[in-house]
Write a protein that binds this DNA or RNA. Structure first.
Lengths: 184, 184
DNA sequence: AGCTTCATGTAAAAAGTTACATGATTGC
DNA sequence: GCAATCATGTAACTTTTTACATGAAGCT
C-alpha cells in the first residue's frame, strides 16, 4: 500500500488557493518546517502525476521579467481524495530522523568540550527556526485568518512550543555537561 | 554524497556491546523512538554491508530453543569511522514527517467533532510513548549508567520533554476547538 | 485456531536526495 | 565578479517501505 502523504500535503496547500510548484516549496518552508519537508524535484514530480490523474489542473502563465510559471489548481476530484484521507481513522506515528539527537545520544564517544560546542550550535539552529516561525506568525495571523485556517494556526503554535522546548532542553543539557566537567 | 546516518546509529549502538540485528531493532524502538526509526530489513542489509567493509565482524551463535543468531561486534575501523563522523562539524537539520500534524494543519477541511476526536487519539498515542520512555528510564538509569552513557541519558530526557510538550499542546488545541464549537 | 516472540533475510516498489541544466535580473 | 531569486525540470542514485518467506515455541 502506498502512503502518499506528500500528495495530501500538496492537495491541502492547493485547497487554500492555486500555487506554482515553486510557491508550494516555499509554503512548506514557511509553515511546515517543524513537521514536514520536501525537495523541489519531488514536488514537481508529484504535481505532474496529480495532473495526469486529474486531481489538479495546470495553466502556464507568461511573465515579463521572470521565466514562465505553471499554476496548479485543485479540482473536485483532488478535493475529495483529500477529505477521504483526512477522515480516515488510521494514523501513523511521526517519522523523525534527527541527526543532532543521534549525535547527542553518542556523546560518550567524544570529548566533553566538543559535545558542549555541538549543543551550542544546535541551540543556535533552533533559535533561528523559532525566529522564523515567530515572524511567520506575526505577519500571517489575525482573528480572521485564525478562524479560517484554524488547523494551520494550531500547528504554528505547536512549532513555537517545539522550538522553545528544544532550546530549554539544550540549556539544561549544556549545564549538565559543564557540571560534569567541573567535577574532573 | 551519501548520508549513511543509519550506519552511524548502528555503529553507535554496537559501541555499547555486541548485538544481533534483531536486538538492534529493539534498541531503536526502546531508546530512539522519539528521534530515529529503521525497518528491520534495512538494519540487516546495512549490517551485511558493514561486515563486508570490515567495520564490524559477525559470529553465528547456535541456540537450542530459538533459531540461530548472528552477533555483530564493532571493530577498530568501525569505531574510527564513527568518531570521525561525530567530530565532523556539519550538522543537518532534523527530517520530520509527522502525518498527525499534517492532518491537524488541514483541519479546515473537516468537521470540528472529527478534528477533536482526532486530537484525542493523537494524545493517547503520545501518552503511550511517554509511558514507554518513562519505564525505559526507570529500569535503565542509575548514577553509574548516567555517567557512562551520558548522551543517551540526555536524549531520553529530551524524549520525555517532547512527549509532555505534545500532550500539553494537544490539550490546549482541544480546548481551542471546543470553545469554537460553543460559539456556533 | 490464531497471535506474538524469536531470528534472518530477498525482491520489488516507493519515496527522497543529489547532481546537473537553463537563463534573466537584482543586489553586494 | 559572485551569489541569490525566480522557475522548472531530467537522470541517477540512495534510502526507506512493503510484501513475502521460513519455522518452532508459547500464549489465549
Amino acid at each position: 500500500m502506498k502512503n502518499m502523504s506528500l500528495r495530501y500535503a500538496l492537495l491541502g496547500l492547493l485547497g487554500e488557493q492555486p500555487y506554482t510548484g515553486y510557491e508550494l516549496k516555499q509554503r512548506f518552508q514557511m509553515k511546515m518546517v517543524h513537521f514536514w519537508n520536501a525537495h523541489h524535484t519531488q514536488i514537481y514530480r508529484e504535481l505532474n502525476k496529480m495532473e495526469q490523474e486529474g486531481l489538479v489542473t495546470a495553466e502556464i502563465v507568461k511573465q515579463d521579467e521572470n521565466p514562465d510559471k505553471k499554476v496548479y489548481t485543485l479540482q473536485e476530484k483532488g478535493k475529495s481524495v483529500l477529505t477521504t484521507w483526512l477522515l480516515n481513522k488510521e494514523v501513523s506515528p511521526p517519522k523523525i530522523k534527527d541527526e543532532m539527537l543521534l549525535r547527542v545520544s553518542l556523546f560518550q564517544f567524544i570529548p566533553e568540550e566538543e559535545a558542549i560546542g555541538f549543543l551550542q550550535e544546535s541551540k543556535a539552529h533552533h533559535e533561528q527556526v523559532l525566529n522564523h516561525i515567530t515572524m511567520w506568525k506575526e505577519e500571517t495571523y489575525n482573528e480572521e485568518v485564525m478562524e479560517e485556517r484554524i488547523g494551520e494556526y494550531l500547528t504554528t503554535e505547536y512549532g513555537l512550543l517545539y522550538m522553545k522546548n528544544w532550546i530549554t532542553w539544550c540549556d539544561w543539557a549544556i549545564e549538565k555537561l559543564e557540571k560534569r566537567q567541573e567535577k574532573k
